[in-house]
Write a protein that binds this DNA or RNA. Structure first.
Length: 111
DNA sequence: GCAGTGACGGATA
DNA sequence: GTATCCGCCACTG
């Protein structure tokens, strides 16, 4: 499906820039790409990224810090397990102290 | 070509 | 604080 992956490619690039132990939200990435109104597209990008091993999709969660996409991983527990390995506490499919682990590309990358 | 849907977010009640 | 609605763009049936 390598056709027009402009948006997807940008999303993946940002996701790969997320440092270990940090997480971000779909909306932030969409905003960073200038498509904040298309936050759903970020989700689609992640869905397509599922076949790319270099895309740490487990570091991308929704605005509430909820692991909304855990069900799309190989196993439902893989996502929180990965985050846990990076020092991120996950309870009830939700990231604890999400605000503290939050990584904002619009700030860290300083566009 | 039309309708439904989706790893979301913001606004409104 | 929660509940509900709408918009947004791409993909699938």
């Amino acid at each position: 499906m390598e056709k027009n992956i402009d948006f997807f490619e940008q999303v993946w690039d940002v996701v790969q820039l997320i440092p270990a132990g940090r997480v971000t939200s779909y909306g932030v990435i969409a905003t960073y790409l200038g498509a904040k109104r298309s936050s759903r597209m970020v989700g689609w990008a992640m869905n397509a990224a599922h076949k790319y091993p270099d895309i740490p999709a487990h570091r991308v969660v929704n605005r509430n810090g909820l692991l909304s996409g855990k069900m799309h991983f190989s196993t439902p527990t893989l996502m929180e397990e990965k985050l846990s390995q990076e020092g991120i506490e996950v309870k009830d499919d939700q990231i604890l102290d999400f605000k503290n682990h939050f990584w904002d590309p619009t700030i860290e990358l300083e566009i």
